[in-house]
Design a protein around this nucleic acid. Structure first.
Length: 272
DNA sequence: AGCTGTACCTGCAGGC
DNA sequence: TGCCTGCAGGTACAGC
């Protein structure tokens, strides 16, 4: 479910709640969610303090004091919910972090694809080292984007927007929306794109991701923030999930195709 | 190297 | 009502 704007919304929310909290106890109900030995993790975490809440691509990172990091990947259906006190267990609650002030952080995941991993140093996290640049980073420029795309000239543009090693954080919803705003057909091969078109795609990516963060993410079905609240960007989607509905620009019905295994939505008239 | 299909899970919508 | 199929915001891996 969560792409960059959703994970960023959760990061901001958790940052306002978790900094300074000290872990008292960790309950792991479904051991496969933990990439570390669950018993070891349950021994190691109590007493550590949350120093900072970061995000890299679609990873959420809790920086711990005096040392260590907790990495979360929410994959399709993971949720991180903060609670002031003990509450009835939601179905599919797999991990509970209890803090010394009795508040809790719960990891909930219907499809069980997501995971948690503890590392002493971020250098040990190979899933982070293979990530491409942050699209909203000021240092991510047209030149850099162009050079990265140029390494895969025969690939389809949508496939590359989804490739986390090329640029991190974009998923299926925002890839479709980005290409709509750029007026580019998702099936276009990179070597057919002009410099102006690549520039439009980059500008569109920055604009849409920023707007989606402002709207606190997109809730189609499962996504909620750290307080169980839905995001508002679903109302602003132009193509994703709108097969057969009129294009907001030209009223042509939105088309849905399958592209590298993913549902792909676009306007056949506006996106050339 | 880079593509495709499959696997990992549960839940839901749609067709019959 | 219920059974069956396909699909879902992600990614890793096998096999070509």
């Amino acid at each position: 479910m969560p792409e960059l704007p959703e994970v960023e919304t959760i990061r901001q929310g958790l940052s306002s709640k978790l900094i300074g909290k000290v872990i008292r106890k960790v309950n792991i109900f479904l051991s496969k969610i933990s990439r570390n030995n669950p018993q070891k993790l349950q021994c190691l975490l109590p007493g550590l303090e949350i120093e900072k809440v970061d995000r890299r691509g679609k990873f959420l990172i809790l920086k711990l004091k005096p040392q260590g990091f907790l990495l979360f990947h929410l994959k399709m259906s993971g949720q991180l919910i903060y609670l002031r006190d003990n509450q009835p267990l939601a179905k599919h609650t797999h991990i509970i972090f209890e803090f010394t002030d009795d508040s809790q952080l719960r990891y909930i995941d219907i499809r069980q694809f997501g995971y948690l991993k503890y590392v002493k140093s971020l250098k040990q996290a190979k899933e982070l080292s293979s990530l491409g640049p942050e699209p909203l980073d000021k240092t991510f420029t047209l030149l850099q984007f162009k050079n990265r795309l140029a390494k895969r000239p025969r690939s389809k543009i949508k496939q590359l927007l989804l490739d986390q090693s090329l640029v991190s954080g974009i998923g299926n919803i925002y890839a479709d929306e980005i290409l709509f705003w750029a007026g580019i057909n998702p099936q276009r091969k990179v070597d057919s794109l002009t410099e102006t078109e690549i520039e439009k795609i980059l500008a569109s990516a920055k604009k849409i991701l920023k707007e989606a963060i402002k709207e606190r993410g997109t809730s189609i079905s499962l996504y909620v923030d750290h307080l169980n609240k839905r995001g508002n960007y679903a109302d602003k989607l132009c193509v994703y999930g709108r097969e057969g509905l009129p294009c907001p620009k030209c009223k042509t019905p939105i088309k849905k195709i399958k592209l590298s295994g993913r549902g792909t939505h676009y306007c056949p008239a506006c996106q050339l």
